[in-house]
């Protein structure tokens, strides 16, 4: 039992962050029509991103029993994964979000593939459910994220 708790603790504190390319990211968020994906683009060096992340963790926590995935996509350099991204996530305890680091060079070639309207600034957030999507460069607080999510989540075609 003690061993089990210890393993759990170790497991929870590992904060493993997978490295994905854009194709892998897209296959992850466009595969399930029943799940609503909230994909937030952020980086440890981006202050407004850091400010809004607690709202995303709160959303993920509140919706943890529903088919909702909050995915935090770090745009930190892949070399900073172990030194910056993983320690940050561990310290903040964002246990309800999934976290990946995007390893995709040449932003001018892939920014448009996320959304044509994206200027490249972060924070930026993409909501996806089946074929429906909503993208915006916007800094959320908990209330605004909640209302935007609720409206997107409920809306029928």
């Amino acid at each position: 039992m003690i061993l089990y708790s210890l393993l759990m603790l170790l497991g929870l504190s590992s904060a493993g962050v997978d490295e994905v390319n854009l194709a892998q990211l897209q296959s992850r968020i466009y595969r399930g029509a029943d799940t609503t994906y909230v994909v937030n683009f952020w980086a440890t060096w981006c202050r407004p991103c850091i400010e809004e992340l607690p709202a995303f963790e709160a959303l993920a926590r509140k919706r943890s029993k529903e088919p909702v995935v909050v995915l935090l996509v770090s745009l930190d350099a892949p070399i900073d994964r172990e030194t910056k991204v993983e320690p940050f996530i561990r310290k903040k305890g964002y246990d309800h979000c999934q976290v990946v680091i995007l390893n995709e060079p040449k932003p001018h070639l892939w920014i448009d593939r996320v959304d044509q309207s994206w200027s490249g600034s972060i924070p930026a957030t993409l909501f996806v459910k089946g074929q429906r999507r909503l993208f915006g460069e916007f800094q959320f607080n908990e209330e605004l994220l909640d209302s935007t999510f609720t409206a997107f989540h409920k809306e029928e075609k």
Partner: peptide
């Protein structure tokens, strides 16, 4: 209220873009 908030949010997003 929800609709109003969302419309405001979306128009803010549209402005940003």
């Amino acid at each position: 209220v929800t609709v109003l908030i969302v419309v405001t949010t979306l128009s803010a997003i549209a402005r940003a873009n």
